[in-house]
Nucleic acid binder design. Structure first.
Length: 783
RNA sequence: UGGCCCGUGGUCUAAUGGCAGGACACCGGUCUUUGGAACCGGCGGUGGUGGUUCGAAUCCACCCGGGCCAACCA
């Protein structure tokens, strides 16, 4: 694929699109500042790695910087060791924060000052209710909260109390500082969120300097603002927090262009646990050897396993960045690892589960050497090593079979197989002990096949790896498998269970493996491919001394074995027959009116009356009448438009479909134009002054910056082009630009008509009459 | 249940009103001294129903499904 250098496409995910737009529009004067903000209370895992690749990647691509900032606002569980851990892991992954290393706890003084600003503005107060009372006062998702008895304390009292909280006058829990926002907000986070709590705990970095600590929602946005972060990228579960993020920044006094938060879907991986909440019990129960256990999806675990950082980066690019929750197939990670290692790992021979071969026709005590290349023909890298050969060898037990399945092409009694880079051998005799256990195989070799080629040209299909018994090194080999069979991240909440659910075969240790002697001379961090087996490297903790211990990084793809299992009908059936019909099973005739709008009408007789009038007198559909009487605001807007252009169906369609789509979070009242303007626009379209398509462009412009439709049509050059000769000219031009598409169309791919219409529309900036264009196009292409 | 967010082949992800594309997986083939790699080919998708439009994965409505929010965690 991408030989050696792993450099996939640049990436055009929605985050990068936003950053690109902001860069082009000069919103931040071209600056791009992102940040990776871990809390130092655990080690980095592969989910963090995705975020690191995103944040540092975006900064790198747009010529910006990415800050490493520790979000150490809660003294419990945070420590220097974790701080160092993140730095180690980020560097290993290949990213660099330069001088931009920050700690949220270093901002405590400034944050305190900001809180005083809020208090003085009457936007924050000290609440002395108990935790329980505060919780109750917040209400539920369906019931509004109720103000507590301290909500209306005076500014002076709040300032004084807050200072005394800081000075340590109170016990933990005695008071908190709360924002005064809206106890009835539909967003629970806006119901007077706690900003500061008292914690008489030692901070790993600031000791006992502070006994009040800021909460995430208050602290994080300030940290971003202090550092002039432009794009604060976090995961989806913080979507609801964005409103509070904006509130704090605006009310403390940060003005545009200020920091803004964007959310993406975090990584979820099949067969893996990614949260520290779930890793900790595994570590504590001794199921894994520590945070760096090679079966864990921590970056330390992945690193110890032997995965190169390039592979992790490639993986992160492969999975992309989006807003839809997803669970990534672990096979993708494995692919990325193989992709990188195939290009870089030298091949050597090892036998994991050995069986002895005695060459009866090879002189006892004699040794010869084969010069074996480190890389296969299709990997453009040089190098060979000598591999000793003698009359006693080991081969993989699985490479011999007395009852071979069809298609088996390794060693069988009486059959031949090639020993890689050495000789073709034939199995003459199977030796067993009294108990019937396999002891060794007696074989003969074809002395003319030195190097592996037969002189008579006979085909020997199988080639297997081997090591000379006398020269072999004995090694321990650790084979890793998924820690979990299913997807624990999704179900089973209890910690107890997670320990019980681990795959008992997630680690298999082989102590008698045999490896060719050449590896003794290699650097201990060499990643090898053990031919036909997988990628391995020496365990950096247990396997670096005289003792050889290898970790399997990932196995080789095995199409033989998978093609075997596929013929098994039980393993084959993908998903069961009964497909869920889900949504379309039973369909009730839907009432085209919504409950909330129904309620609005019930509360306002005027609206109810208009609803009746719209649907009967004006002849609108129920759906349109419903939408137009959601509120007086909408209805009035509609009637103003009607006053200008009295065609209810046309106006309703523009208002309920096109304009609604442009509104976004805004309401009609926020628009820089009035109902009359919409009426004018619709009238222009009705009068054939511009195409409906062009009308939408005008409407979009109006929604952005207001303006008179008549003027805009002229200004934007959208006066309808319906003149046949003009259109034919443009059509000719379009067809000439796409000769191969024309051929495809005429060959039967008539769906391309849309593309041609689109091209013509583009060339006329939307001014052409699409109906005419289509008609002319069909005539022209068919005739 | 109120609010917010999200539904594109088995999986991940593009298409920003105009040809539904890529990757992984899977299946077949070529080649091969790794049952690896590479190469060639194939299977397979817009949750549903209406609406707007010359044209809808994309805009509108309703429905279905999933996620997040009621810590003095982040």
């Amino acid at each position: 694929m991408s030989g050696g250098e792993v450099s996939p496409k640049p990436g055009t995910d929605f985050i990068r699109q936003i950053v690109a737009e902001d860069t082009e529009s000069g919103r931040y004067g071209g600056r791009v500042v992102t940040r990776f903000p871990p809390e130092p209370n655990g080690y980095m895992h592969i989910g963090h790695a995705k975020s690191v690749c995103l944040n540092f990647g975006v900064a790198r691509e747009f010529g910006g910087v990415c800050h490493l900032r520790y979000d150490d606002t809660n003294p419990e569980g945070e420590s220097e060791a974790f701080v160092l851990g993140f730095q180690e892991d980020i560097r290993w992954l290949g990213f660099d924060w330069g001088d931009h290393l920050y700690f949220a706890s270093d901002y405590f003084e400034r944050m305190y000052d900001c809180a005083v600003i809020l208090i003085e503005k009457g936007l924050a107060y000290v609440d002395s209710e108990s935790e329980q009372q505060i919780r109750e006062g917040r209400g539920t998702v369906t019931e509004a909260g109720t103000p507590g008895r301290y909500r209306e304390r005076s500014v002076d009292e709040n300032v004084d109390l807050f200072r005394r909280m800081r000075d340590g006058e109170f016990e933990g829990g005695a008071h908190v500082l709360r924002a005064k926002i809206d106890l009835e907000s539909s967003n629970m986070l806006m119901r007077d969120p706690v900003l500061y709590r008292i914690r008489h705990a030692s901070h790993y970095r600031h000791g006992d300097d502070w006994c009040i600590y800021p909460m995430y929602d208050y602290a994080h946005c300030l940290e971003d603002a202090f550092e002039d972060v432009t794009h604060s990228i976090c995961t989806l579960e913080f979507e609801n927090n964005r409103e509070l993020y904006d509130w704090v920044l605006e009310n403390v006094g940060f003005e545009e262009p200020r920091s803004h938060q964007y959310e993406f879907a975090r990584l979820d991986l099949q067969h893996a646990v990614l949260s520290k909440r779930k890793i900790i019990p595994l570590v504590e129960a001794g199921i894994v050897t520590g945070w760096d256990d090679p079966r864990l999806s921590t970056v330390r675990g992945i690193r110890r396993r032997g995965v190169p950082p390039e592979a992790l980066r490639l993986f992160c690019e492969m999975i992309g960045v989006a807003k839809a929750h997803s669970v990534v197939d672990i096979g993708k990670l494995e692919y990325a690892i193989r992709e990188v290692l195939n290009q870089s790992a030298p091949r050597v021979m090892a036998v994991l589960d050995p069986i002895r071969i005695v060459l009866t026709d090879y002189p006892d005590g004699e040794t010869e050497e084969f010069d074996a290349p480190y890389f296969p023909h299709d990997v453009p890298r040089e190098g060979t090593r000598p591999v000793p050969f003698s009359n006693e060898l080991f081969i993989e037990c699985a490479d011999f079979s007395e009852n071979p399945p069809s298609g088996f092409r390794r060693l069988v009694p009486g059959g031949e197989v090639r020993l890689r880079y050495a000789y073709v051998i034939r199995c003459e005799k199977v030796v067993r002990d009294e108990a019937g256990r396999l002891v060794e195989l007696h074989c003969t070799h074809d002395s003319d096949s030195r190097g592996g080629k037969t002189v008579d040209g006979r085909r020997v299909k199988g080639t297997i790896q081997w090591v000379s018994a006398d020269h072999a090194l004995t090694a321990e080999i650790r084979l890793y498998d998924h820690l979990f069979g299913e997807v624990p991240e999704n179900d089973a909440p209890e910690n107890q269970e997670i320990v019980a659910r681990v795959n008992p075969n997630s680690l298999v240790v082989l102590v008698g493996a045999k490896v060719e002697p050449s590896i003794r001379a290699d650097s201990p961090d060499t990643r090898y491919q053990f031919e036909r087996t997988g990628y391995f490297w020496r365990d950096p903790v247990d396997g670096l001394g005289d003792k050889l211990v290898f970790n399997r990084i990932v196995s080789l793809k095995d199409t033989w074995r998978s093609s075997k299992t596929k013929s098994d009908p039980d393993l084959r059936r993908g998903k069961a027959g009964s497909e869920n019909v889900g949504n379309n099973a039973i369909k009730v005739e839907k009432p085209a009116v919504s409950e909330s709008r129904d309620a609005a009408r019930a509360a306002a007789p005027e609206l109810a009356a208009r609803f009746e009038r719209y649907s009967s007198d004006l002849g609108l559909t129920l759906e349109q009448a419903d939408l137009l009487t959601a509120s007086l605001e909408v209805s009035d807007f509609f009637e103003k438009a009607l006053a200008v252009h009295d065609h209810p169906a046309e106006v309703a369609s523009w208002l309920t479909t096109d304009l609604r789509g442009l509104l976004g979070a805004r309401r009609l009242g926020d628009l820089p134009f009035e109902g009359e303007d919409l009426g004018h626009l619709v009238a222009l379209v009705a009068a054939d002054r511009l195409s409906r398509r062009a009308g939408k462009d005008v409407l979009a412009r109006m929604a952005r910056e207001g303006g008179n439709p008549e003027q805009l049509v002229v200004e934007m050059g959208l006066e309808k082009v319906a003149d046949v000769t003009v259109l034919e000219g443009v059509i000719e031009e379009a067809l000439n630009a796409w000769p191969e598409k024309v051929a495809e169309y005429q060959a039967g791919k008539t769906g391309l008509i849309g593309m041609f219409v689109g091209e013509v529309m583009k060339m006329t900036k939307g001014a052409a009459d699409p109906k005419k264009v289509r008609k002319l196009l069909v005539q022209r292409l068919n005739g």
